[in-house]
Computed example of a mutant assay.
Amino acid sequence: MPDINAENFADIALSLFRFQYYNNSLYRQYTDALHIDPVSVKTLTQIPFLPISFFKTYQVKTGDWTDTALVFESSGTTGDIPSRHYVHDGALYESALLDGFKSVYGDPSEYAIIALLPSYLERGNASLVHMAKVLMEKSGHADCGFYLNEWDKLKKVLQRLEANGQKTLLLGVTFALLDFAEAAPMPLKNTIVMETGGMKGRREEWTREQVHTYLKNQWQLHDVHSEYGMTELLSQAYAVKDGIFKATASMQVLVRDINDPLDVQKQGTGCLNVIDLANVYSCAFIATEDICRISADSSFEVLGRMDHAALRGCNLMVL
């Protein structure tokens, strides 16, 4: 992946659009059905965004390849068809993940990384589990690991890390963080707590503000961090406080009108469109089912999900 910055992002994205139009038959058919001439697409807001639901019913691939490095699969709900993201180049994923993480948090080797992802560990192809594994491998700390509901053991590990002044990242699905916080209140001064959303029907739905307030009170935190990612994306966005996300270098977000999917703007409130330049061999232009508010500085909030969209584990309802 080339070095990406604010100055060259649009040029890279437009080149990738043309590459995917001519080498992804599904995306080309979708673009043609919208009567969009690829030659006329000159700006990011003119690019057609593929509905994310296509990942449920098609193998979204750019290029003629069969050698799959990874297959990420969403949790979905009972009876629902999961999304599948076929990843041709695992190095692209790892590069986007690590470059993005380092830009916000520094090198993973500085942290002990602990993951509370019980519902995701039940599946073999969860992108969030793979993300945590990559960060743990790059960390190399002896206390890195996944936990289910071993609250006493985890509390002792965190207390020891805190006593040693070790920087720690506690990454967790929302319901597991709430369960652990209820069972093990303690001061966490050297630990970043990062929620990834997701109640999975385990608890009453809380707003993000309620979740963060509870976690801050239980663990004496100044802020709770958040991660925005999903099966269909290889890049992430992070929020260091209050659920205000900043996309990493390989990602940009746009907003589309709820009633007119071709009305796409750089800021405002509506449905979230994501450009993910790491999705070279799938589709880089995704129309999600999340409702968002994008500010003038390109930071964004996730406000909830479209009414007809199935609940998915990587999103936290806040409406």
Rank of each mutant, 00 (worst) to 15 (best):
Q159H: 10
T269Q: 15
P51L: 15
E289K: 03
Q236T: 08
N23G: 03
G304D: 06
G201Y: 03
V264A: 10
L116D: 08
A284M: 05
K102H: 14
M136H: 11
G172P: 04
P261F: 15
F146S: 14
E7S: 10
D99N: 15
D89M: 05
L98Y: 11
L117P: 00
N164K: 06
E110I: 06
Q46H: 12
L215I: 12
A132H: 05
K56I: 13
L97S: 12
T43Y: 15
Y111W: 10
G197F: 04
K246H: 05
E162I: 12
L16S: 05
A249T: 15
P2A: 11
E73V: 15
S299A: 03
L188K: 00
T269G: 06
R123W: 05
S119W: 09
S53F: 04
E73N: 08
L154W: 01
F285P: 02
L44N: 13
H130V: 07
K241L: 01
S299R: 04
T231Q: 00
N315T: 12
S226H: 11
D263F: 12
N23C: 07
L34Y: 10
V60N: 03
A91D: 11
D32G: 08
G198M: 02
L70M: 05
L44H: 06
G197A: 10
E7C: 09
L178T: 00
A112L: 04
G197I: 00
F19W: 09
A184N: 05
S127Y: 00
M199T: 14
W206G: 06
N315D: 13
F180G: 11
F300Q: 10
L316A: 13
A112S: 13
F245W: 04
P51A: 13
L26F: 02
T174E: 00
V104E: 03
E195I: 05
M131P: 02
A132K: 07
E162S: 08
W219M: 11
G145W: 09
S282G: 10
A142M: 09
I113M: 05
F180R: 11
L262E: 14
V240Y: 03
P51M: 11
T207F: 07
L233R: 07
M186F: 01
T62C: 12
K266Y: 05
V39I: 05
C271L: 14
L311K: 02
Y21A: 00
D152F: 12
G198N: 12
E289W: 02
S299D: 01
S74H: 09
E162L: 11
Q252C: 07
N279H: 06
V302Q: 14
G198T: 08
S235L: 03
N125A: 12
M317N: 08
D290K: 00
R312M: 08
L44G: 06
H85E: 07
D89F: 09
F17I: 02
D290Y: 00
G145D: 01
L158T: 02
C314I: 13
Y147A: 15
I47A: 10
G243F: 05
A183N: 07
C292H: 03
Y27H: 02
T174V: 03
H141V: 10
G268W: 00
E195D: 11
Q220K: 04
K153P: 07
Y21H: 13
Q166Y: 08
Q159D: 14
A69Y: 07
F9T: 14
A183V: 03
F101N: 01
R293S: 03
S282Q: 14
D67G: 06
N190E: 13
D242A: 14
L233W: 13
K56H: 01
V224A: 00
L262D: 09
S40M: 12
